[in-house]
Simulated assay, not measured.
Amino acid sequence: MSTINNILNIVLPPLSLVLLPIYMLPYLFFKLFIYVKSLFYKENMAGKVVLITGAASGLGEQLAYEYARQGARLSLVDIKKENLVEVADMATSLGSPDVIIIGADVSKVQDSKQFVDETINYFGQLNHLVNNAGVGGDPILIEDCSDVTKYTSIMDTNFWGAIHGTLQAIPHLKNSKGRIIVIASYTGWFPLPRLSFYNASKAAVISFFETLRLELGWYIGITIVTPGFLKTKMALRAYEYEASLRIIPMGSTFECAKEIVKSACRGNMYVTNPSWVKVMFPFKMFYPELVDWAQQHVFGLLPKSSKNGNLHILKNNQVLKEE
């Protein structure tokens, strides 16, 4: 096997340089075809059933309103059920013919089973599952984290919270040839400093649902959303705790929700809003050293001079002292 790997190590790099340009033109035509098709095809959500977690505020609330404008029937889920009453009333006034509200903690398996069962028992079907519920946690440097158990709730909610509901909903979504919309984050592929646990939870979400698409893509559509920083309570809290994050402009939850619903109804695999965030992806892929260096400068992570004036130099990810 080592011989085969050695051969592949020699052959594949130059071969890929030849094949990539050859496949580029057919791929661009394929993308153009998909785009033109999406202009004429849009799933009609009138009367269809949409379950949204974390719907009491932020992006989840705006998604409820946008689906309501499309005439969808809504099952709204949040850990704070009392906050869903006003959202449900607004969704009804915007055009949703029927709305139910359910109090549940997505990080708990039994709660997830409950809100899916209640939705099916009431509406008799499920067309879109929107895994939106999420938490952020206070920004912190990894080396300053003395108790990681304080951050397990981030993975429990952001990752397992999306998994629990999805596993319960899969049989119903297969019956309706429905769609899963999962709210990840661009930090899942472009991690930001001081948000390590949040970054990791979103990276796990992206990887899981890309794998699920491979396994169930013929039966269930999957749209992975990687938004930038949106103006939500969670983002504002992060800005409050970490001033360096304020250089990142906030997007609009209203505009993002519109883009998500439009893209999901067109059958898109990915949605990124604001769209400028996508520019960071090729830089991260092709110039990782440059990206790391730039972030270390921007976020103030370069080694500081010592008290005696000796210069600290960062080399190969280790701090060296120049006497």
Rank of each mutant, 00 (worst) to 15 (best):
V36L: 08
V77P: 05
T3G: 09
L19Y: 06
Y67F: 09
L314F: 01
L15I: 13
I220A: 00
V291M: 04
A133S: 07
S244T: 15
L173R: 02
E143M: 12
V130S: 04
I52Y: 00
H297I: 09
I142G: 11
M234L: 14
N317R: 14
W189H: 13
F159I: 03
I142L: 14
A235M: 10
G58T: 04
A91C: 03
N9M: 14
S305W: 09
L126E: 03
P282L: 02
G251S: 01
L302C: 10
N6D: 15
A238T: 15
F283I: 12
T3V: 13
Y67G: 10
G228E: 03
M1W: 11
L76G: 12
V49D: 03
L94T: 07
Q168F: 07
V50P: 11
T211H: 09
S305H: 09
G95Q: 05
G309K: 05
V298K: 12
I183A: 06
T272L: 06
S16V: 10
L63K: 03
E289T: 08
D144I: 11
K233V: 10
M45D: 11
V116T: 06
F29V: 15
S16H: 13
K307E: 14
S244W: 02
L28M: 14
L302G: 07
L126N: 05
K231F: 05
D138C: 08
P193R: 03
A294K: 08
G228R: 03
K233Y: 11
F33A: 15
I206H: 03
S2Q: 11
G267V: 02
G95W: 01
I170D: 03
Y186W: 07
M280L: 13
P97C: 02
K80A: 11
N5Y: 09
G178D: 00
T187A: 04
P139K: 05
V87H: 02
A200K: 03
N5H: 08
I180P: 01
Q114F: 08
N44W: 01
A184E: 07
D138V: 14
P14G: 04
